[in-house]
Structure formats: C-alpha cells, structure tokens
Design a protein around this nucleic acid. Structure first.
Length: 378
DNA sequence: GATCCACGGGAATACACGGATG
DNA sequence: CATCCGTGTATTCCCGTGGATC
C-alpha cells in the first residue's frame, strides 16, 4: 500500500516538472506529513535541547513529557529533533555544531534515539517489538515469542555500552496507551532507557515541555512555507492568513483545509485557489474533529467501512451503511454495525439523531477531513 | 507446541416507548 | 397524574477461534 502511494507521488512529481500542474507536491501540503525542519517552533526546540542536554556527554536525561493541543506541532518538532540527533550522535560521529553547546561525540555516540508511533504499537508486545526493530538490523519476530522474552531481549540490546531515549507519540488517544502506562512498560526494562512521552494533557509526574497552539502569525508562516513547496506560484499571504485565523492555531486543520481546497482546484483544472475552493476546503474539515493521519492508521476493514459511508450520500443511517458494506465485503452487517458504533465512540464519526425516525438507529457523519481522506485513499 | 492478536459473532445490557396500574 | 412494568430494539461488551509465525 505505502510503496504504491509513494510511487504515485513520484510519478506526479515527475509529471509536474513537464506539465505545469497547480499542485507540484501533495506531500508538502499533507497534514499527515511532517517536514524535516518544523517552522516556528524554535522556542520549543530549545527547551527540548535543554532537557536532553545530558546526552551530549553520553548520559541519559530524565523522563520527559511533551504536551499541548492538537495541531500544535508536538510530533513534528520531536520527530525532527530525534531524527537529527540520531543522525548526528549515532551516525558517523559528525560533531555537533551548536553555538551554546559543546559536543563530545565519542561519549555521546552510545545513546540511541528511537521514535515509536504508539498508534501502531498499542500493546506491550508491539511497543517492545517496534523499539527493538528500530535498534536492531535483523528483523524481530512478530509472533511465537512472548512479551517477556522481547522485554529481556530489549534489555540485552542495551546495557552499559548502549543507552536509549525513546519518544512515544500519540499517547492518550482512543486505543493507545496512556503516558504512565507507556513509562511503566519501559521502567520494566532492565536497562538504561529514558522516555519522551507525547500527549495532549500535562502531567506533574515527570518534567514537562508545553507546546502551545500556534499564534496566527506563526501558523501563517507554516502555511506559506508549505504552500511554496507544494503549489505552483505558492500561496498568497492573505490566503494563508485567512486559513490560519480560521484554524485557530491548529496546523493540522489549516493544512487539511488547504489540501482540500487544492484538491478542488486541481480537479477543476484551475491554476489558483478560488474563494469557493477555500470555503469548501474549510467546510470539509470539522472543527474539533479527528486528524486524517489518525484515521488512516485504522485497520483496513474500518477504512473500507468509512469508504462506504462516504459514498452513501443519500442515506447515512447506521443500518443502511452496514447493509452496503456487508454487500460489498465478506463482513456481516452486524459486524459492520459494531464497527460504526466503535468509530463513533472513538470520535472518528459523530452520531446524529435520524430525523425521520426518532428513537430509531442513529445516523452517522464523518468527523475528519473528508476531502483529504478521499484523496489520500484514492 | 507457544505466542499474539485480529476477527467476528453474539450475548449482555441499556434504553425508549407504550400501555397498564395505583 | 405519576409511576411502574414489559417488550423490543439499539448499543456495548466480551470471548472463543484461528491464522501466522517462531
């Protein structure tokens, strides 16, 4: 699935250099993709570096918790930092060029940086496996080995000569671990491990770094940067401002609206974003909804269910969708019904009272950016 | 044989409604 | 009029099974 999308992207990019398409790089606009160098989060970066200071002399930092509202760039800044630290400290020993910090790569090269998306690793087994896979060249078994064995193998991998700082992203979502649960799983590993947990809520259990929502001006800059990489001719400043204001500091929402507007413009063969494009792009992003990236990590059968829901424009009752999906797949209507209730419970869908039949089965509507979802699923 | 977990069915529970009862 | 069933359906929850891997 992923390689195919990647291939499509490459082809699109190649065509864009010969054609003169409006959208030159969908990935630059995607709310589900994080750029290598996050814009406008310099202060947060400094605080993270302050806390992680000990790694520059080969020591482990204390556990850390990074928290803030959705779309504030928590994941983006931590992932970018980890990938750079990993490159510099565990790689070929390139000295660190930071004005305020002295580097000693030889000692620090013993610290490994690993980031795990806990959406894909929501059980202890998966969490240990994902971490171990990142540390080791050879593949780690998916089955046939117990969680305990994996934990001791992880401890064996570490030890006096190797320390680990692990970032745990997307905690405290429906069906992911909580920060305390995640920390205790790594406390149980007999080896030098420090965690950097990422979640929406603050805590006083460990040191914290807050990531506040973007201010309008900063978010405008983010959008301008993305627009200039993704759109022919870039983005007009007033458009970026408008999106930023509308999104109220949530970069995921703003990018989803921009992406949706670009889909409409591109489909209509336009070379720029019109007002209606923007209006509809924003309208397709429910406020306080769920991000596309979260939706896209759901199991395939749930995605098939959502596809069917989106193609049912006339009737959106739970029963109608269940019937439609059951007909197209080998799932039973009862099972699909259960999926729909689950998705509503997790905030991916919103249950609405059906007008014609009060007290009957609920209707259900998406609570995620539908234009972006469709485009990324297609 | 051991292990994890996705899957799916279906049991268990909550709820709404309508009618009966005090 | 208020309250209490009884019934059927909407909704939630649980657990056994089987596939895949080691």
């Amino acid at each position: 699935m992923l390689p195919v999308m990647d291939l499509g992207e490459r082809i699109a990019r190649r065509r864009a250099t010969t054609d003169d398409r409006f959208v030159t790089a969908w990935s630059a606009l995607s709310p589900a993709a994080h750029p290598d160098d996050p814009v406008g989060r310099g202060a947060v970066l400094e605080r993270l570096l302050d806390h992680l200071g000990p790694v520059f002399s080969g020591h482990l930092p204390d556990d850390l918790h990074v928290h803030g509202p959705p779309g504030g760039g928590k994941s983006a800044v931590v992932l970018a930092l980890f990938s750079e630290l990993s490159r510099q400290l565990t790689g070929s020993g390139t000295p660190i060029q930071t004005s305020t910090r002295a580097a000693s790569p030889s000692a620090a090269s013993r610290v490994s940086f690993v980031a795990v998306d806990t959406r894909q690793a929501a059980s202890p087994f998966r969490l240990y496996r994902a971490t171990l896979s990142a540390l080791r060249e050879e593949s780690v078994p998916k089955r046939g080995v117990s969680t305990d064995v994996l934990r001791t193998e992880l401890a064996d991998e570490l030890g006096a000569s190797r320390k680990l700082v692990v970032a745990l992203d997307h905690l405290d979502e429906p069906r992911t671990l909580s920060p305390p649960e995640a920390r205790s799983l790594f406390d149980a590993v007999e080896g030098p491990v420090a965690t950097v947990t990422i979640g929406p809520e603050r805590t006083d259990a460990v040191a914290t770094v807050p990531v506040p929502a973007y201010r309008d001006a900063a978010l405008t800059e983010v959008l301008m940067a993305r627009g200039s990489r993704g759109l022919r001719g870039g983005l007009r400043h007033e458009v970026a401002e408008r999106l930023a204001t509308w999104a109220d500091g949530d970069a995921a929402d703003a990018l989803a609206a921009l992406y949706g507007a670009a889909v409409l413009a591109e489909d209509a063969g336009r070379r720029s974003l019109t007002d209606p494009d923007l209006e509809q792009g924003m309208a397709a992003v429910p406020r306080d909804g769920v991000s596309v990236s979260r939706v896209l990590t759901l199991p395939e059968n749930r995605l098939v269910t959502l596809d069917a829901l989106l193609s049912e424009t006339t009737t959106r009752s739970i029963d109608a969708v269940a019937e439609a999906v059951a007909a197209k797949t080998d799932l039973s209507a009862g099972t699909v019904t259960r999926f729909l209730y689950e998705l509503a419970e997790d905030g991916v869908l919103e249950r609405v009272e059906s007008e014609d039949e009060p007290g009957g089965p609920s209707g259900v509507v998406p609570r995620f950016p539908t234009l972006v979802y469709r485009h990324l699923r297609a």
